[in-house]
Write a protein that binds this DNA or RNA. Sequence first.
DNA 1: CAAAACTGTTTCCGTAGGACACAGTGTACG
DNA 2: CGTACACTGTGTCCTACGGAAACAGTTTTG
Lengths: 232, 232
Amino acid sequence: MAAKTAITLLWEQRTAPKRGPKPTLSLDAIAAAGVEIADAGGLAAVTMQQVAERLDVTKMALYRYVPGKVELVALMTDLAIGEPPRPDATTTGWRPKLDAWARQMFDRFLAHPWALETTVGHRAIGPNELGWMEAATAALTGTGLAGPEILDTAATLTGHVRLIAQQVAAAPSGAPEQVLGETVGGLLAGREDRFPTLTAAMADKGGEDNAFDFGLRCILDGVQLLVGRPRQ
Amino acid sequence: MAAKTAITLLWEQRTAPKRGPKPTLSLDAIAAAGVEIADAGGLAAVTMQQVAERLDVTKMALYRYVPGKVELVALMTDLAIGEPPRPDATTTGWRPKLDAWARQMFDRFLAHPWALETTVGHRAIGPNELGWMEAATAALTGTGLAGPEILDTAATLTGHVRLIAQQVAAAPSGAPEQVLGETVGGLLAGREDRFPTLTAAMADKGGEDNAFDFGLRCILDGVQLLVGRPRQ
DNA sequence: CAAAACTGTTTCCGTAGGACACAGTGTACG
DNA sequence: CGTACACTGTGTCCTACGGAAACAGTTTTG
């Protein structure tokens, strides 16, 4: 084996070997098993042993298909992120498209919270992940925004989606805002003089409190100012 | 030892023991050693063994001060995040204040990139981290925004700061936009028909390309619409 | 001076990722 | 048709990690 890299595994056509015994496993089956384990028990539960047991194989058998765990996680990630949403012909306009895009990405991350941990830092980007970027870019193409501005918009939206998804995933029961209130509220008790405005803000029940919608609207409002801007 | 929790270690006054030999270590020294190791070699390099070696102590000696590794990481995190920036009297207005706040948080995360990994999910929040929240809240108090809106604004800004910091940290050399271009550009080569708008956007050199400034301005613009909004 | 409290150390264990050599299996070629 | 080769899954071994438990030395308190 020529020590296939993660990029190769993610992007290259998978060719069945010509000689030797029939493989009992496949890259997709291995990745799917890993996804199931991660969905059920978190990323920490994904060990070579666990994945192998689920496939009724020895741990070392997996190394015939995957060079190491990082490559396995890369395959799992691209599988879990899934194909980007089909461009919905009914929704027109960049803003509804981006809004739907962000919400669908949010749903994907909620379905596979562990993917939030695996999609950070230096990593191999798979076809599906790149497809999501393409979808966001397509929504903004033709609005008059420059290329870098389009990419930066997608990045900003991603940051917001990820942050809220992380908060929701950390508190599976109940709204994230409520859980935050309990945690921080407990810490603030008896220390109101040290954190006065924070105490006041948390006590104020006025206004809407949907962190996801709020941030999404803020960002899209900011982008709208650029879209409506006169060409220079 | 009554199995002190991370919250206790972070918030409670540290009282020196009355009997027994003088401790050769302290919580601060241990946390500082961990921070140095993490700064140099990343979070993965922080093992009990490494921390102990740096302090010329056995690994198990650390467990006299810290119940486990998660608590150590919590202490390291609050130490690395550091005290929030002193409210600068010269900068007035919520927008310059928030702008400076975001940039200073960005710098902190760049100085300790591993803190990006430790400040996610269920965790014990320390005094410094809460102080940063207080600072952001203070900047927005009096603008007419409701409490939840203030908190959501801070959250949205945090998301943006974190995302860009992650990208920069992943590419220590060179601008993040450039590194992203090389990585994605390599993947796009030969697949332009599959990712048409993404290819076009990456080829476009027009406009500014500073992802941090761009997103920050978008978010603050969106907030400004709320600040200028008539009270209801 | 002895008991108690506290320190740092030694030893041990379970689990993780992974290297390596081995034996079985199926195809291609002489 | 048989043998060499490529490929598979397996058993064994190693290192490193977090942590439990019991131990020995040190300082204060009665």
